[in-house]
């Protein structure tokens, strides 16, 4: 069982090599976003050291969208009928889904190492153990987001619908979080959803790890991210098992 889990993880992690151009563009986008937009906007806002705040936040947003890429992989695999092959293999279905969530998570973490290094270079590292603890939280976010992606694509069973819904979720989940702005500056109807948003907790945990301005309790954020990962992976297993068996991909 462990062998199969590692093989599924390995396969998803190796897929990273196939997306070289996508990753380079993503890194370039991150670099420009921080050095141009972040820098310019930091002169306009009252938050102290906003450039650092922004750089940490947008790294979490980048991690989120890279982790969500597993949903596009599954969507493409389904369109090529590749899902049937995976379902026919002598691998326990739960192992298959957990492996894909973990593989997708590790992959996104590896894929965002250059932006992470740039962020660390920009802000500086004050306490390595704390930074490692925060990074584990980010890894939990990656696993959870990959699980969310698997759940969505399994539920919708449609490449087009998946594209549209992920675009909509991306717009809301990033904006209704503390990725770009602190909760203190949000109206209550924004701050309430932001308080339960896993991206908020990941961003705050990362800022705490970097030793810059952060809101909330890091332990609580860690627990939220762990719960998010467990909930999304469980939902992913449930939906993948029930929805992917039976075909009907559109």
């Amino acid at each position: 069982m462990l062998d199969h889990l590692l093989l599924v993880i390995e396969r998803d992690v190796r897929m990273i090599i196939q997306y070289k151009l996508f990753l380079i563009i993503r890194w370039l986008w991150y670099f420009l976003q921080v050095t141009i937009f972040g820098l310019a906007i930091s002169y306009l806002v009252v938050v102290e050291n906003y450039l650092f705040y922004y750089a940490a936040g947008i790294y979490v947003a980048t991690l989120y969208s890279t982790a969500m890429f597993v949903a596009f992989d599954i969507s493409e695999e389904a369109e090529h009928g590749f899902v049937d092959y995976l379902l026919s293999l002598p691998i326990d279905r739960r192992v298959l889904i957990v492996g894909r969530a973990i593989g997708g998570g590790i992959r996104s973490f590896l894929a965002t190492i250059p932006p992470l290094l740039f962020t660390l270079y920009l802000i500086g590292v004050r306490d390595i153990p704390i930074l490692i603890e925060a990074s584990i939280g980010l890894l939990l976010l990656s696993f959870g987001v990959a699980g969310l992606g698997i759940s969505i694509v399994s539920f919708l069973k449609s490449g087009d619908k998946t594209d549209i819904l992920l675009g909509a979720i991306d717009a809301f989940i990033i904006r209704l979080s503390t990725v770009f702005y602190p909760k203190a500056f949000m109206p209550p109807f924004y701050s309430a959803p932001a308080a339960v948003n896993p991206l908020t907790h990941a961003a705050e945990l990362f800022r705490w790890g970097l030793g810059i301005q952060s809101e909330g309790d890091p332990i609580f954020s860690f627990i939220v991210l762990l719960a998010f990962m467990i909930a999304m992976t469980t939902t992913g297993i449930y939906l993948y098992e029930r929805r992917m068996e039976g075909g009907g991909w559109t």
Binding site: Q18, H80, G81, F82, Y85, S88, P90, D92, R93
Partner: peptide, 21 residues
Amino acid sequence: YPDKVRSLIGIAFQDPKLFWI
């Protein structure tokens, strides 16, 4: 026992299931 069944069966599909990359 789907897991047990899959450990006994192998299939070559009508349409090759190869990821294009």
